[in-house]
């Protein structure tokens, strides 16, 4: 089976500061991987490089064998940790836009998920609550049949009920040919759905293994392991 995502000696520096230091790893299809690390560890930098929003200082990224570009963007569905959509657009308008640009976007699925949340598609983003805005962004991302989903802090700043909803959406969307990369620092909420955990500290990988292996080896939860590894 071919690797879905390959990171090959990725480094990124901003002036004197080294944000990522020789990061190399692979993700196979059908895995849900947690990108875990404290703030400033380089998680978002790595994610932006995968989505070609930042160019690396050295090293390469390959997605299905392609460098980040038009082909990779067709198969990568990215949820940033910010609101990035034009607030004046209606949910309906956004769905039409996504359907226009992405062949693998499924509008029926999007409308189905929206109806379950009682969000009126005719409303503009501006009129929705912040929580609902974030859910709409998640729905748009998850309604694409992508090979790689990259979710940057999908549950931070979200109430527990919404958290459950988001995790449920992720699980029910699971496809054994696709992978999900979730960056978060709220580990205990999410570790039950992770296949693998990748620990990032100060731009370097300190750990990359399956979660159940880690639980067997270290006799503790991923959350507890995280606290141990990243003790202040």
């Amino acid at each position: 089976m071919e690797q879905l995502l390959v990171s090959n000696h990725i480094s990124k520096h901003y002036g004197a500061k080294l944000a990522l230091n020789d990061v190399s790893f692979q993700i196979m299809p059908g895995r849900i991987v947690g990108l875990l690390g404290p703030n400033g560890s380089g998680k978002t930098t790595l994610i932006k490089i995968i989505n070609s929003l930042i160019s690396p200082s050295s090293g390469e990224i390959y997605i299905n064998g392609n460098k980040p570009g038009v082909e990779s963007k067709k198969v990568v569905s990215y949820l940033p940790d910010k609101t990035y959509l034009n607030e004046w657009m209606t949910v309906e308008g956004l769905i039409k836009m996504y359907a226009d640009f992405y062949e693998n976007f499924n509008p029926e699925r999007a409308y189905d998920l929206l109806s379950r949340l009682n969000i009126d598609p005719k409303m503009s983003l501006k009129k929705l609550s912040k929580g609902n805005q974030e859910k709409v962004q998640l729905i748009l991302v998850m309604s694409r049949k992508a090979d790689l989903y990259v979710l940057d802090e999908p549950i931070a700043g979200v109430d527990p009920a919404a958290r459950d909803y988001i995790l449920e959406t992720i699980i029910s969307n699971y496809d054994r040919n696709a992978s999900i990369l979730i960056s978060t620092h709220l580990i205990s909420d999410i570790e039950n759905i992770l296949d693998d955990a990748l620990f990032l500290r100060e731009g370097q990988i300190v750990l990359y293994d399956s979660t159940d292996n880690l639980r067997t080896t270290h006799q503790k939860s991923i959350d507890a392991l995280f606290r141990e590894v990243f003790r202040c």
């Binding site: 989505n51 070609s52 929003l53 038009v70 082909e71 963007k73 067709k74 990568v76 990215y78 940033p80 910010k82 609101t83 990035y84 959509l85 034009n86 640009f101 992405y102």
Partner: peptide, 12 residues
Amino acid sequence: NEGYLTHTLPVT
């Protein structure tokens, strides 16, 4: 922030 949409669209 709008760039997060602009630059992830599958266009050259």
